[in-house]
Amino acid sequence: MILYVIRRLLLAIPIAIGVTIVCFSLIHLAPGDPLSTVLPDNATPEVVEEIRAAYGFDKPLPVQYLVWLGNVVSGDFGLSIQSRRPVLGDIVPAVQNTMILAFAAVLIGFPFGTILGAIAGYSQGSLTDKVVTAISITGVSVPHYWLGMVLVVIFAVNMGALPAMGMGPGGQSDFALNWAHLRHLLLPAITLSVIPAGIIARSVRATIADVRKKDFVSTLRAKGLSPAWVFLHVAKNAAPVVLAVCGLQFAQLLGGSILVETVFSWPGTGFLMNSAIFTRDLPVLQGTILVLSLFFVVINLLVDVLQTVFDPRIRRG
């Protein structure tokens, strides 16, 4: 078990390095000069060269990468081209805000999706199953920015019950566990939870239906165990698959949603990236993408380790 965890940890290192290379090169391969937006139109070529050198953009890419990586490892993500402040100072609060939103979406979407999927898996082929499948396909297919706007129109514009944008009253961007703040959280969290709920419902349904067809379920019935007890066995068998899907969805939620955060003016990573893209603020963009990708790696690692708790066969794998 511990050996498995260590091996899995070591495997995560090359993945993380790969992530840094991909996110560094993607941005440098993209067309457009990062300095063009900050430099005045009448800047002389000498000034341009000077500033390029100051940011290190004149060196070959591999060198730029290594310098950047060295800085990142020591916690220095560079300076934002726009605000000239350390990038980390922008990323940390944005990540926090996105996390708040992601956790709220998880709390709403995961139980909903799991319960819905389990009910459908247990009534495969029945009307309930068809209704649940229809709901989850709708959930997956509806564009969430559109759903966000519809919710805003209904609850904010027409009913005036919930605020349409921002994190808290008066545009503050700190969070507290009170109704004034939770009101702001509700609409974006619901909007974000719909797709993961749909995806989870579908995979839980498929997994449960699959496990219920296994021979050992007959054995459990032949042993005279109650349906609730049999469900416990089915659930533990389904857990690794469901966990993997939930982990992926959670990582995706942590990545923030550019569209939803923009619709609701939620100052998270999606919001930050959106503005960084428009201003070609490469250090901010790079830093944010890197942090989010590393979240993905870490969460996948956690899921892999958690899976072994449910399925002993993985431990040897």
């Binding site: 296994k214 021979d215 050992f216 007959s218 054995t219 459990l220 019935r221 032949a222 042993k223 005279g224 165990l225 066995h233 533990k236 068998n237 449910f310 399925d311 002993p312 066969r313």
Partner: peptide
């Protein structure tokens, strides 16, 4: 089931729950 009448299945690999 399981007390008065008990059953042995053909394929013990699939008839036993793999995660218990």
């Amino acid at each position: 089931r399981g007390s008065t009448v008990a059953m042995i299945f053909q394929e013990p690999m699939t008839a036993l729950d793999p995660v218990f």
